[in-house]
């Protein structure tokens, strides 16, 4: 069994044509998902049960079920319901790309919300007490003390989630969205060369992951410049 280099080389550009879709998906979902996450977080920590309970239930459901199931429910399941077909959202939900965006956004919103909550919980109580002793209101403490520190604390976990999201974009090939993985599957179906195609595609994803990690690493270093660095034991 030999590796068909020629096939690999001519397939890579074809697969890369899907990179636009992959990135579009990634950025749109990241933007919308983070916004959703902030809303969910504020609901969760609001202290009012009619806000925090729905938020907790939402997060629980979306983190507790496989993302593929969520994608399928939105793509296959929703069109089966009358009121969905007649709603204003139909044009988005009829389109595979639209479904993908909706599903990934709803999913990542839940995960990022928990990540942000972890950041908020990590803010030392003493700092909030100092703010409170100085007379700052709850809102002022949240904006000026909690938020900057929570963002810094949440960044490592957030970067991991961005990478997970990027990997999840490959799933949309199962609902006919033509991203890199979708193109790869087509090529493999024709050429029966899974190793050449899929492995080279894996390398493409690894390069993207590497890029994401490096960017976040630089961001993290910048945010931590005024924080005591723990020296490696």
């Amino acid at each position: 069994m030999s590796i068909d280099i020629a096939l690999t080389l001519e397939s890579i550009p074809k697969m890369l044509m899907g990179i636009g879709v992959t990135f579009q998906l990634l950025f749109i979902t990241l933007g919308l998902g983070t916004a959703l996450a902030i809303v969910l977080l504020l609901m969760r920590i609001s202290g009012r049960w009619y806000l925090s309970v729905p938020s907790m239930v939402y997060i629980y459901v979306f983190r507790g079920t496989p993302i593929l199931v969520q994608v399928f429910i939105i793509y296959h399941g929703l069109p089966g319901l009358e009121f969905v077909r007649e709603s204003i959202f139909w044009p988005i939900l009829r389109d595979p790309f639209g479904c993908a965006v909706v599903a990934l956004t709803l999913n990542t919103g839940a995960y990022v919300s928990e990540i942000l909550r972890g950041g908020v919980l990590g803010v030392e109580r003493g700092l909030l007490e100092a703010g409170s002793a100085l007379g700052l209101s709850v809102r002022q403490r949240f904006i000026y003390i909690t938020t900057p520190i929570a963002v810094r604390l949440a960044t490592p976990a957030y970067s991991n989630d961005v990478i997970s999201l990027m990997k999840s974009t490959a799933l949309v090939s199962t609902i006919t969205v033509v991203d890199m993985t979708g193109i790869a599957r087509t090529i493999v179906a024709e050429t029966y060369a899974p190793y050449e195609i899929f492995l080279s595609l894996a390398i493409v994803y690894l390069i993207i992951t590497w890029g994401i990690q490096k960017s976040f690493g630089a961001f993290e270093r910048r945010m931590s410049r005024h924080v005591k660095q723990e020296t490696a034991a």
């Binding site: 030392e124 003493g126 100092a130 002793a133 000026y144 520190i149 810094r152």
Partner: peptide
Amino acid sequence: GMVFQSFNLFPH
């Protein structure tokens, strides 16, 4: 005004 054992200066 209050002064705390662990200073609690805003690190950022």
